[in-house]
């Protein structure tokens, strides 16, 4: 049996490294950082850890409804496809910074992309 995407990327250690880099990128990204104003940073990091675990194909309990509910407030604030694209860019840049091979980046990006309609409440 070949290793899962999650194992190939490096499991939980990779997730932890990714969260730190990714969260710093989105907070510094003027296109999207207003959506992170006022949130509890520790809780946000925990959510991002769950998100990366999912994107890396790891064990997760996320449902489409969770994604919808979690982002409904942001959709009201104007969250749209351009913001989703910005997050996808930061996601790819994070994985590049961690030297994840490009075929694995593509797989993880595809998993993240699959949440688009739920995140945007479409």
């Amino acid at each position: 049996m070949t290793a899962s995407l999650y194992e190939q990327i490096g499991g939980e250690a990779a997730v932890n490294a990714a969260v730190d880099i990714f969260y710093r990128k989105v907070l510094a990204d003027h296109r999207i950082n207003r959506f992170f104003d006022g949130v509890d940073m520790d809780q946000q990091a925990a959510k991002q850890k769950a998100f990366f675990t999912m994107a890396f194909g790891g064990p997760n309990n996320y449902s489409g409804t969770d994604m919808r509910n979690a982002h409904a407030r942001l959709v009201q604030m104007g969250l749209d496809g351009s913001h989703f694209n910005a997050v996808m860019e930061n996601l790819a840049a994070t994985m590049q910074e961690l030297n994840v091979p490009s075929d694995l980046i593509a797989q993880a990006a595809a998993i993240a992309e699959s949440t688009r309609t739920d995140v945007l409440g479409k």
């Binding site: 925990a46 959510k47 850890k49 769950a50 675990t53 790891g58 064990p59 997760n60 309990n61």
Partner: peptide, 9 residues
């Protein structure tokens, strides 16, 4: 409880 995988705490 929520995520059951050590993420949400």
């Amino acid at each position: 409880n929520s995520c059951h995988q050590g993420a949400c705490q």
